[in-house]
Simulated assay, not measured.
Amino acid sequence: MAPQTARRTALEIAVQDLAGYRVAAGAGAARTELCVALAATGGLTPSAGLLAALVAERDARSARGAHATGIHVLVRPRPGSFVYDAAEVDVQVRDVRAAVAAGADGVVVGVLTRDGRVDTGALSALVEAAAGREVTFHRAVDAVDDPAPVLDALAAAGVTRVLSSGGAARSIDGVRRLAAMVEHARGAVQVMAGGGVRPVDIGALVAAGVDAVHLSASRPVAGDGGPGGGGAAGHTVTDPDVVAEAVAALARA
């Protein structure tokens, strides 16, 4: 009987700029989720120029033999609910196609019906637009009462993974539900823990059996944009020290 290979839990960092990608790639993260307005909205679709900059960086790293962290693009046209009308779905399909054409390794989407089920028609269109790239279903799953039917629908649609906090504000508080999701999915869909993840939480999340952990590893940057720029809200950037702590915690786990 051949010895079993130890399961490795992947690290994904949510980034909002080229500097963040460089931090994540330098630390050896498996993937990045590229988005914008993360702290203010939970993340929105990034610009074409930003994606192009990251793709160029990834390809340059690959050409010189360095670790080339994957780029997965969040496709979310607005804040708020994950229930979209036909026009909003059409925009997302166009954004997925554009991301794939620009060289993204995958896309991150989430579409629900008003009664809390997966919008299978919209999801099918998004998966088709991804043209074989990996598709992650984001934390729209945390807006439903029972994730089991969602997992079944995602597996049937060919979705690679689901990002979830286990329905809690912070993943560590939803760890039991995350473990139940892993058990239900049985590998048909990868379960990635995300939502308020701190390096100190990673050991418990890995013990729950998740396939990956996802965190922004961010720190706030003050900056008053005035009345036309969001006031004094500032923004967040990737913190290299937090990423390093997450890498170390994952290695210990």
Rank of each mutant, 00 (worst) to 15 (best):
A153F: 08
H67N: 10
S47N: 05
R78F: 00
R198Q: 15
D173S: 15
G223Y: 06
G223N: 08
D152Y: 10
V200Y: 00
A52N: 12
G103A: 11
P149C: 02
M181L: 11
D119T: 02
G203D: 12
V213W: 01
E245I: 09
A37K: 13
G223W: 11
L34Q: 05
D146A: 14
L38R: 09
L51V: 01
T236V: 13
A155N: 06
G167P: 04
S62G: 14
A212K: 05
V221F: 07
A63S: 15
V175P: 06
E12F: 04
G116L: 09
H235N: 02
G116I: 02
A179D: 11
A39N: 12
V96I: 07
T41E: 13
H235L: 14
T69D: 05
A25I: 03
A180E: 15
G49V: 01
G234D: 07
F82A: 02
D239S: 07
G229E: 09
A86T: 10
V100K: 00
D119S: 01
L205R: 09
A104I: 02
R64V: 12
D90V: 00
I202V: 12
R8P: 04
H214Q: 13
A68H: 11
L54T: 08
V189C: 11
A66C: 12
P149F: 00
V243P: 11
Y84F: 15
A10F: 09
T236G: 04
P46F: 05
G228T: 13
D241F: 01
R198S: 04
V83Q: 02
T41G: 12
D59T: 03
T69F: 02
T136E: 02
E128M: 00
L178D: 03
V150T: 08
D59N: 10
D239G: 09
V107P: 05
V55K: 06
V55I: 12
G225I: 08
A10V: 11
V135M: 08
V135D: 04
C35R: 12
V144E: 09
H235C: 09
D152M: 07
L205E: 04
H235S: 12
R161S: 13
A148L: 10
P227Q: 03
A169Y: 05
V15L: 08
A169S: 14
G42N: 06
Y21G: 11
D145K: 14
R139N: 08
L11D: 13
Y21P: 09
A53Y: 05
A217L: 04
A29H: 10
A249Y: 00
G194M: 15
V191I: 15
R31Q: 14
V89F: 02
S165Q: 15
A63M: 07
I13Q: 06
A193F: 01
A130R: 00
L51Y: 05
A24S: 13
G132A: 00
A233N: 07
L205H: 03
A232R: 15
R117L: 12
A244D: 12
D142V: 10
G195A: 11
I202H: 03
G196W: 09
V159E: 04
